[in-house]
Amino acid sequence: METYTRELYRALGAMPGDWEYIGYVSKEGADLDLSWFPGRIGESGISGENRFIWAWGELSQVARAARREKVDLVHSPATLGPRRTAMPTVVTMHDMLYWSHPELMTTPLYTAPVKWMERKAAANAARVVTISPTSQREINKYLGVPSDRIDVIPLAGEAPKNVDRRLAGSEGPLILAMGNRRPHKNWGALIRAAALIPALQRPRIVITGGRGDDPLAPLVQSLGMGEWVELKGWIDDAEVARLYSVATALAIPSFAEGFSLPTLEAMEAGLPALLSDIEVHRYVGGDAARYFDPSDDQALAGLLTEVCTDPGLVADMTEAGLARAREFTWARTARDTRAVFEEALLTSRS
């Protein structure tokens, strides 16, 4: 959501017109580089470190700040939003995972409050923006928002800086995976699939994004995969660029997602994408990616073997991926989002 907010408002700022933007940020956010924001920053004084405190701020304090600033419209870009506003509000809801896959959420005490807050934010919103047809359908189903009040506006990808794909394969076959360790990410499937491949053909697996004691470590140990699987925490830009440069492909075995920004970022960099066969991945990857059943470790093992041994396949996927990524731009996201803002304003005045 941070990438979405930053790139959307950077692109909105580049559009013509006399729009004025005021950003309302957390206490921690105010200390960051916010030069990308095309307007004035207002510090909320509310910490974003505690989910409940920040959610309370979204529900109650945003409306007060908006009233104080006499704004014409409120945009909440991170799923939650104010419970009640005097002016029209647009809320961007990225996914409905707490509703559709509660069993895969790692914060069960947070699930019921989030669902209540999402329901309140959606009820107050003049319009809801979401990022895929999957999420649109689920917002309609779980929150009761009419489909004609929901606008699907996809995200865009931008390749990490300083990636050199001429180095691809220079460290041997390597499958890259990036993301948090929430159960819906299904990283265990990637480790189990690699274990099914004969050792002489087996690619290395690098999974970044862990924090603290990695919950994947016991699986790696139990399968004897320590030599082939490297579990990393959050990595800096230089390491991201290195891994994107040397990797054979990116793999995402998720059971569910709201979108798939890493897919577009990989394709933009020239890195083939291997994706679980779920609707949202088909929406993003199109014909440029290769797909597998996230519950079928053997099918994933076969696909890993294929991409690591067939240079022609990699070349075809790279070319198709670059073309696919060009279809998604932040300029398009900004243009369509501002059209939603204008519609919300127009409706409120009629």
Rank of each mutant, 00 (worst) to 15 (best):
T3P: 14
L8M: 08
D18R: 12
Y24M: 10
D33Q: 01
W36N: 11
G39M: 10
G39D: 13
I41L: 15
E43A: 07
E49C: 03
N50C: 04
S60G: 06
A66Q: 06
M93L: 09
H94Q: 08
L97P: 00
L97H: 02
Y110A: 09
V114G: 03
N124H: 11
I131M: 12
P133K: 00
P133Y: 09
N140I: 07
V152A: 10
L155N: 07
V163R: 06
R166H: 12
G172Y: 03
L174G: 07
A177F: 04
M178G: 01
R182H: 11
R182F: 14
K185A: 14
W187S: 11
A189T: 14
R192P: 00
A193F: 08
L196H: 01
I205P: 03
T208H: 02
A217P: 06
V220D: 01
V229N: 03
I235T: 04
P253K: 09
A256R: 08
F259N: 14
P262G: 12
A269R: 08
D277F: 01
E279Y: 03
V280Q: 15
V284G: 09
G285R: 02
A288N: 13
D296M: 10
D297W: 06
Q298L: 13
V307C: 10
C308Y: 08
D310V: 06
D310I: 06
D316E: 15
M317I: 05
A320P: 05
L322T: 07
A334M: 15
R338Q: 15
T347E: 11
T347Y: 00
T347R: 11
